[in-house]
Structure formats: C-alpha cells, structure tokens
Simulated assay, not measured.
Amino acid sequence: MRLDTGRLYAAAWRWAPKVPGPVLRAGFTVVSDVCWLLRRGGVDQLERNLARALPDASHRELRRTSRAGMRSYMRYFREAFALAGSTPGQIAARVRLTNVEVVQPFLDEGRSLSLALGHMGNWDLAGAWSSATWMPVVTVAERLRPEEVFQEFLSFRTALGMRILALGDDGVFRDLVRAARAGGSVLPLLADRDLTAHGIEVDLFGERTRVAAGPAALAQMAGVPLFAVAVHYERLRGSRRRAAGSPWGLSVTFSEQIAPDESLPRADRVADMTQRWVDFLGASIRERPEDWHMLQKVFVADLDPVRYAATTAEGA
C-alpha cells in the first residue's frame, strides 16, 4: 500500500494546531529518537556531516550531537505543522535578532537585502516573523515530490505572508532580481547545498562542498547588499516563554555586510562573496552544530565521483 504523503502533510497541518503543545512535543521527540536509534532518515549522513564540523569530537560526543540534531530537525517539522495555530504575538515573542543594526540602515533607505541562509533552526518561523512584524519576504522553495507535498508547503508559507517562487520554474532568478530592485523586502535563500551545475565549490570545515551561487549573484545583479544569517534555537524562560506559548524560540544573527571585492575581476566576485558567507555559516554551525539540519550529502568527498564530474563539466 502506497503512503499518500500529500494527504499526510495536509492532515498534519490541519490537526497539529489542535493538539496540546506538550503532547505534540513529546510525540515528535519520540519520533526523532526512534529515527536516531534505527539510523533512519539520513542519520548516518548527518553524523558524517557533523564529523567535519566537530573534528575533535569523540564517537560518543558525535552520537550525542546527532541525537540532538534529529530532535532539532523534528522540532522544525512540529513547529511548521503547528505554526498556523500561533498568534502574531506568540510568533513575535519567539524571535530575537542579533546584530540587526548592520542591516537596518539599508531597510530604512527602502532597499532590499539578499540573505544567505543554511538549513539551520526554523527558517519558516523566521520568515513568518519577518512578514508579520518586520519586512516582506520573497524567497525560493525547492519543488518537492510528490507535487501534493510541494503544494502543501507552498500554501503554508504563502499563508504566513511570504512570496514563494518555485525552484526550477522559468524566470525565477529574473523575478528575484525584480523583487530586489523594487526595494522594501528581504530575500532569504537557503543556499548551503547545490549539487547542480549552477552551484559553486567552496571550502567548509577544510573540505570542498558545493553551495548555491544565488545569494551573491542576486546581490551583484540587483545591486543590493548581501548578508549571511544564522538561525539557532534557544530555550525560552520567564515572561518571554509565557508570551511565546513555547519553550523554544529563535536567535537570528546577521553577519557583517559581505561587500564585493572591487579589486577582483567581476567574474570572480560572486565566488569570493560566496566563500565569505560560507565562512560565517561554518562558524555558526560549529557554535550550535545540532541545529544544522543537513541530512543529505553536501561534501564533495561523499559524492559519486563520476556523476559529480559530469555535473561540473555541464557547468563549465
């Protein structure tokens, strides 16, 4: 019997907001621990990725971090399914910005921002917060399979106030440039994995990996500033926890501006800017490795060499 994942996701979004928070948290914690124990859902690859971030960690420490990582990953899904039941006040209480003073002057001038994000923390909650209380969000989402699952995620993010463009559709980058040039919005792009011919090979934790050129290319093409963003979970206590209606909030930290190096040839500037936001991302991952939800192959050493060579040849 084939599992209808589209209906499963639709049911989760419909019913999760009605389930008491402690019950929902306990259920998803059980799911994460079972997946971790059975080595399901990419746990082995998660540990291989974390081993790069934590080269001095013992086997026991790595296992402990991967368990915390699976709990963080499932926390993201639990929060996504339940987010529709949150009030604007609860969403506002859950998000805390750090180093926002580096980006605010550009927004005060009416300019847009290109933001490079990794798969860290809960980027949907951060987007919902921005759309409701800060700046409109325009971003790109991977077209998931089956189509029903993608449509559920599309409806979910659109309902939160975000404008979503589907990766792979015609004219996506052109639409991003138009939105950036129009001003008054933030364009956060999940960019820490791109194994297509359009990706850029960079250094992360002393190894080669392939990430998206999008954030830096958008900044260059549209003439908007580029920043990297780290999103981590943080425990809430006291009045903030009561206002949030949750024990978990988010810390959203902005890097310093990643400006193009005018001394470099124009063709090399995107690669240089990409390496610099990856450096920020790497430092952020090492600070809170359990919040890096990278359960897929991302380092070149883990890829099939024949297929990877074909990909790089296609992009040459």
Rank of each mutant, 00 (worst) to 15 (best):
G110C: 07
W36Q: 01
L189S: 11
S251A: 04
A301F: 12
F81Y: 03
V100T: 10
L115M: 02
P188A: 04
Y76P: 10
A212W: 00
T253N: 02
W292N: 07
D169N: 12
G199Y: 11
A316C: 13
A84S: 15
W13V: 03
E79W: 03
A68E: 05
R67I: 06
V177H: 05
H119T: 13
L113W: 00
F227G: 09
R266V: 13
D108L: 02
L160I: 05
E61A: 13
S246G: 07
W129I: 12
A216Q: 06
F106N: 14
A80G: 10
S255F: 02
L281K: 13
G41A: 01
D203T: 07
L218C: 05
R25P: 13
S251Q: 14
G214L: 14
D169Q: 15
H119C: 14
Q296L: 15
S86C: 12
P55S: 13
T311S: 06
A26G: 08
M273G: 01
V102P: 04
A180R: 01
A93F: 09
V140D: 05
E262H: 15
Q104Y: 12
S130Y: 03
L303T: 06
A51C: 12
I91C: 07
R67E: 06
H293T: 12
G282Q: 01
G171I: 07
V31Y: 02
A182K: 14
V177S: 09
